[in-house]
Computed example of a mutant assay.
Amino acid sequence: MSKPSTISGSMQIGNKKVTVKLALLLFEDGGVNIAYCPAVNVYGYGNTSTEASKSFEVCLEEFFTYTLRKKTLVKELENLGWRIKKEHKFYPPEFSSLLDKNKTLHKILNTRNFTKIDQDFTIPAFS
């Protein structure tokens, strides 16, 4: 697998946005490079880690676009273990708590060689 590239995520609704640091796992599965963020359960893939990273960015944007359109962003994030305060502060689940609840993450950590990077992502503050 090639060296991890920089990942960036950005989604803004007017001036309402927040930035959070999320763990991103980069690994190979069957000759395909995967970028996976367990905090939002979003994947990207490609022939290289750069392609996987770009695919992930597109998929992350689609996740936000879809949940905002359906008005389910807050509910979806809460279902994924996020804490969202009334003052529009978003707190992603701790990586260690994701291990207890996310069987996919558990499998990746136990069966794949991976690189974990922590990356800042900008997400919409309102659904």
Rank of each mutant, 00 (worst) to 15 (best):
S53E: 07
G30Y: 04
E62P: 08
P4G: 06
W82N: 05
T104R: 14
F27A: 00
N41G: 10
E51V: 07
R69F: 15
I13N: 04
T111F: 12
T19D: 08
S55V: 12
F56S: 06
F114D: 11
L26T: 02
L68V: 09
N102Q: 08
L77Q: 03
F126R: 11
F114A: 08
M11G: 11
G81L: 12
R83T: 09
S2F: 12
D120T: 02
K75I: 11
F126W: 13
G46C: 03
L80V: 04
S5M: 01
K101E: 05
P38F: 00
K103M: 10
L99T: 01
L22K: 08
S10V: 14
L80K: 02
Q119C: 08
K71A: 15
I34M: 05
T65F: 11
S97A: 08
I34N: 02
Y45D: 12
S97C: 03
L60K: 04
T67M: 10
G14S: 08
S49W: 06
L80W: 03
H106A: 10
F126P: 14
G14K: 00
V18Y: 05
N15V: 04
N102F: 06
P4L: 06
L77F: 02
C37S: 05
G30R: 05
Q12M: 15
T65P: 10
F64W: 15
S96W: 01
V42G: 07
I13L: 03
L99N: 05
F95A: 12
F121V: 05
M1C: 13
Y45I: 07
S97E: 12
R69N: 15
Y91F: 02
L60P: 01
Q12G: 08
